[in-house]
Write a protein that binds this DNA or RNA. Structure first.
Lengths: 341, 341
DNA sequence: CTGAAAGCGCTTACAG
DNA sequence: CTGAAAGCGCTTACAG
């Protein structure tokens, strides 16, 4: 029943022996470097075929070749936000002939153990980093070595000149909230912040405040909660407001994920959206237009962020001069959850 | 402005030189192998600290050490299904001291180019594979080399003895459909299949048919559509039925994602769920209980599948005897979308 | 067009 | 307890 398993994978030496050439020649046909006689190429390729040879990448990268893959460091993968981002990254990567490898848990420096993030120069030519906590030993080590790095949705900390790609959060949030104020006349507008330290959330809140201020609406701290860009947490934040009888006529949920949590909480409490309370999100993830009511939100070009970030990273990898800071435009998307038809 | 960047990372040789010992000794303190005098340990550690040394993992794995990371090969990352899976995998991996690396696009053998999947023995001690198309050269190569492999939600093809972990799809689907028949009296029950070739979908459809047959309901091919386990596609499948005036009183959507698409389509068409049409899903992803109406579905222990799969993989990595086939139980979860209160 | 040889950064017997 | 040396599988000048 059990299949025969050769215990050893074929190496370049096996191929060379079988083809009757040197390993240097095999390497040349493998990489297309240097001239090789046509017949030799054929013989070597046959041998590789025969032996089912694939180069050992660790050896390759040790010997100084690039890995042709880029890495993505993420805190988590839940949420409608990530698929478009990853799609953008993969599109960008593929376009430039790179593969994308993902490591999806928060990097927690382990007690004493020098355990690096599993994505670095051994398997990767550069890293895309999406994280809130940048005070990271490992990141610093990579940075100081000049390892190609690009930051997603976050400006580089002062002193580190790492290119970063993000979106116009403040402007988007402001136009969204101004829409609620000027078109619908809402004045009790609640805001659900993202995770602590999250930069997107910081700017969105600023946009929210600017909009209020521009229209003479005093900022009310009671109307700021924490949704953490998460449907479940947003839901309970709203339930909490409802329980405490906080009055509001609209909620800017921080992002679309949280908006869907808000709508669930309101519906559960017997409130109609948008008739009793308007709800708006941010991001315009794919399901936003499918929701009932369809979600008014801000289109953040998530996929484009991904493609652009890859482009910058690859520029750095190729030794070029990257754009230090890319700020992609956002755009108000008016649908029904704000009260528009 | 620009920070000083040492062009070269510290190597074991640098550490050895600074500490005044041989590289063998540095290696020993690094790995805790072999005896080293306490004072020597301290000196070496100081040197490592000083130089900000991290071992070059490619060199390490070339020299024969394990990578302590496992890889996950996935066709995509969209959908509420993946986060719990990945959480399970990470829990399992962490438990055993392994890291998890993800590669998320379909492996497409490129024309002639011998481009292996970017996850293999160079950066990984074993691979978890989630895919529909297993006729994969690369997978076969790994298998034949005896590289540790475990399949997710898919039985091993005949001849390959690769451990696999999946759930009781057929039984779950059957009890779900029987609930619709016996408790609610529905007889026109539609089914939305998953992606072509998907094994989960195959078994779910079988369970669906068994339930119909057991209750004397003839199978009607007009009531089988394709939702691809995707909300958008499921939505248009239902819209299509509606347009063609296909009559049904309940839909088994294939999975929860598709169920949410069905509900959107029905709602858009002015139909009430569950009053006009009942909708049920499969998986019990986190948002299922948050939907309106809350979704009747089958709980598939996604996270447990992940943990179990890692357990098997690590057994194989350690040279142990894995369980060849693990079938985790599913359970009917009755909520409101079927018509129950 | 091709090969011999050094080197990438580590681990691991083997001596001492 | 410690070091010299071989070897992991490749790439890349350097000769020829």
């Amino acid at each position: 029943m059990s299949v025969q398993r050769p215990s050893r994978r074929a190496t370049i030496t096996d191929v060379a022996r079988m083809a009757g050439v040197s390993i240097a020649t095999v390497s040349r046909v493998l990489n297309g470097t240097g001239p090789v006689a046509d017949e030799t190429v054929v013989i070597v390729q046959q041998a590789m075929e025969e032996l089912n040879y694939t180069p050992h990448a660790a050896a390759r990268s040790l010997a100084g070749r690039s890995t042709e893959t880029i890495g993505l460091l993420l805190p988590r993968l839940s949420g409608a936000f990530y698929p478009p981002l990853i799609r953008g990254l993969e599109t960008g990567a593929k376009e430039h002939g790179f593969d994308l490898l993902i490591h999806a848990s928060v990097y927690v420096p382990q007690d004493g153990a020098r355990r690096p993030v599993p994505l670095d120069e051994r398997n990767t030519d550069g890293l895309l980093i999406f994280t809130d906590r940048l005070d990271d030993t490992e990141i610093n080590r990579l940075y100081e070595q000049g390892f190609p790095l690009v930051l997603l949705y976050r400006a580089a900390p002062a002193g580190l000149n790492i290119p970063s790609v993000t979106v116009e959060n403040k402007r988007g949030a402001r136009s969204l909230v101004e829409h609620l104020i000027t078109v619908h006349g809402y004045r009790r507008i609640a805001y659900l912040a993202g995770p602590r330290g999250n930069e997107d959330s910081y700017w969105r809140e600023l946009g929210y405040r600017e909009a209020l201020e521009a229209h003479g609406i005093p900022f009310d701290p009671d109307l700021v909660g924490r949704g953490d860009f998460d449907d479940v947490l947003a839901r309970s934040a709203v339930e909490d407001w409802l329980r405490r009888r906080v009055a509001f006529d609209a909620i800017f949920a921080g992002d679309d994920e949280a908006a869907s949590g808000c709508i669930m909480a309101l519906r559960q409490a017997g409130k109609q959206v948008p008739d009793d309370v308007a709800v708006v999100g941010f991001d315009d993830v794919p399901f936003a237009r499918l929701m009932a009511p369809s979600l008014t939100t801000v289109r953040a070009p998530i996929e484009t962020v991904g493609e652009e970030a890859v482009r910058q990273l690859i520029t750095v990898i190729h030794g070029g001069e990257p754009v230090p800071f890319t700020l992609l435009p956002t755009e108000l998307v008016v649908r029904q959850s704000c009260g528009c038809k």
